[in-house]
């Protein structure tokens, strides 16, 4: 008996130290390196890199793409989650499977799909040209790619919550004469609020960091179609290591903010649902 407890204690500590060492080596060390390298030549060099016109533009473009991705995926995610959990229809299985596609497909494929659909070799291109709409190698392409890679995040968070709840409350509300939007606002949404916010946070994080798909569609035009991750690569390739790390540190800070937000949401969400 005693022996067993000691051995399980050992197992516990070994497992815990493995997890901590792994996280320290794989996550903390590189993150700390980024920060150290960013400040290697002092605050002034750091500041210069961060307030550089190209960097500011890259930040704005990244924020723009992220905002669009979150808004559009919110609408899509809510509709998809709602329809998949509240009705039965033909093609439901297919829809469920297809939603997950962006998670399984490599981002570079996503980029190439849009390049082939809207690029010069596509039959759509002359029409777009006539309408004076630029998609590939321009901002809309970057927004599209970002939406593509992030679209499952919100619906995937919502579907399990909605599924486990069933339709009873909504049906009761409908019987009492509530309209669809009222039901959504007063009955459904309060239940899925935390899952929804969690999805938004994940979606934001992924959208900000997207590199592969955006890289294919960007054309790497400095000050025009350069997002933050792409800008880091460009700086690195220009032997501007300190600025590269400085810009990377912006991404790290954004990631940390999101991580904190995530924990807050998780914590509050859990407390709220426990109270209920």
């Amino acid at each position: 008996m005693n022996k067993e407890t000691t051995s399980s204690k050992v197992t516990k500590w070994v497992l815990i130290s493995i997890s901590f060492i792994f996280i320290a080596l794989m996550l903390l060390l590189p993150l700390i390196t980024v920060i150290i390298e960013a400040f290697k030549q002092g605050w002034d060099v750091y500041k210069q890199a961060v307030v550089d016109d190209y960097t500011v533009h890259a930040v704005l473009l990244t924020v723009e793409a992220t905002v669009f991705a979150v808004i559009i995926n919110t609408v899509f995610g809510l509709s998809a989650a709602w329809s998949l959990t509240k009705f039965n229809f033909k093609g439901k299985k297919i829809l469920t499977t297809l939603i997950d596609l962006p998670v399984t497909v490599s981002p570079i494929i996503a980029g190439l799909i849009f390049l082939l659909t809207f690029g010069r070799q596509s039959p759509l291109f002359p029409i777009l040209q006539d309408l004076d709409i630029k998609i590939v190698f321009a901002v809309p392409g970057i927004v599209l790619a970002t939406i593509f890679v992030t679209f499952p995040f919100i619906s995937r968070e919502l579907i399990p919550v909605l599924e486990s709840r069933g339709n009873d409350e909504e049906e009761a509300a409908a019987l009492m004469g509530a309209g669809g939007f009222t039901i959504f606002r007063k009955v459904t949404f309060p239940h899925i609020k935390w899952a929804f916010l969690y999805g938004v946070v994940l979606c934001t994080a992924r959208a900000m960091g997207e590199f592969g798909a955006v890289s294919v569609l960007s054309g790497h035009l400095r000050g025009k179609t350069n997002t933050l991750p792409l800008h880091v690569e460009i700086l690195f390739n220009e032997f501007q290591y300190v600025p590269a790390f400085a810009v990377a540190s912006i991404l790290v800070v954004m990631a940390i903010i999101i991580l904190i937000l995530r924990s807050v949401i998780e914590y509050t969400g859990m407390r709220k649902s426990n109270v209920r």
Partner: peptide
């Protein structure tokens, strides 16, 4: 119910 859903959509 269905109608409401359509409204939402």
């Amino acid at each position: 119910m269905n109608q409401n859903i359509f409204k939402f959509a």
